[in-house]
Amino acid sequence: MIGHETAMDDALALLRAGDVVAIPTETVYGLAGDATHGIAVAKIFEAKGRPRFNPLIAHVASLEMAEAIALFDPLSRKLAESFWPGPITLVLPLRDGSNIHPLVTAGLDTIALRMPQGFGGQLIHALGRPLAAPSANSSGRISATTAQAVASDLGSRIRLIVDGGAAPVGVESTIIKVEGGTITMLRPGGVAAADIEEVAGENLRRSDDGAKIQAPGMLASHYAPHARMRLNALQVGEGEALLEFGPISIQGADRAIAALNLSRTGDLREAAANLFSYMAKLDQTGASTIAVAPVPQTGLGEAINDRLARAAAPRDTQLPQS
């Protein structure tokens, strides 16, 4: 691992050579490779063990770079101008002649684009090309929000992990698609639906559970620990670990073999930032089941509950359930 303050030259050298680098972003850590370089993109899939029908987000450093890749409708442009750089991804028609490698889009005629904050954005600007960068973890497992979590999972498979501290948002980006004047949220994430609706001036449509894969993070089983997840638990069973939320403990909390509280004050931003790291810590206790107390669906609670539901889904599920 190298601190982000001194990692730029090493990261650029690896990316220019067609290799991959784990980098910090405001959402979670990403496994980044040149989105125009087929071997680099293939290395991302290989390192993660990711199915190749699952598309990747291409990360850009400017709206100009994004416009060279995709076609923007007026509403998508408004959302980009309002929320970029930040934790929102836009799914847009791929521009003819774009140099994005086909592995990134998984054969779709659309591309998912995001502009990250901090080191990620600086790295893309210095490279001058977009980066494909899914979460830096084994496919389907808990996303990494620290460099140490990346190292424990992928450390033997990649040559450089850039340490930028704990990811402040803690869940992946919200994914939005504008089509026919309708705004659909394909995945809830680091920007709450209400904030997007305020800028857009209209309500968001939610993606159907059985919808085809149009963007990353739509697999039914994802973000999963090794332990089974039991959601909306109102009591704790023998031998279970407990993931709590809020100031009031659920029945039998004292029986849990380990317990962590996403936010004792009920702060959903704090809960989102803690989600993946706390899931990983409870998984490391060896508990066969993690009981999860109810989390409100409001604000960032929608993204938290989405990740919890995918973590609790059957592990052999690779396509959205119909």
Rank of each mutant, 00 (worst) to 15 (best):
E26R: 02
G30T: 03
D163N: 11
G164S: 13
G246M: 11
A136W: 04
T298F: 12
T105F: 03
S138R: 15
A194M: 14
I2L: 10
T27R: 03
Q251T: 15
P24L: 10
H4K: 14
D153E: 12
P116H: 13
A7K: 05
V104H: 04
E202L: 14
G239Q: 05
T89Y: 05
L94P: 00
E238A: 15
A112K: 02
A106N: 01
M8P: 04
G3Y: 04
D254P: 00
G128F: 08
L15A: 06
L231H: 01
G120R: 01
F119I: 12
K281Q: 12
G128Y: 11
S207E: 12
G239P: 04
G30I: 02
M1F: 09
E197S: 08
A147D: 01
R157T: 11
P294L: 13
M115L: 02
A68V: 01
M115S: 08
L12W: 05
I88F: 00
P296Q: 11
T25Q: 03
S249C: 15
E198H: 12
T317D: 11
L160Y: 03
N232H: 14
S277N: 13
K43G: 02
A303W: 02
T36H: 11
V21A: 03
G86R: 03
S135C: 01
R269E: 14
L131G: 03
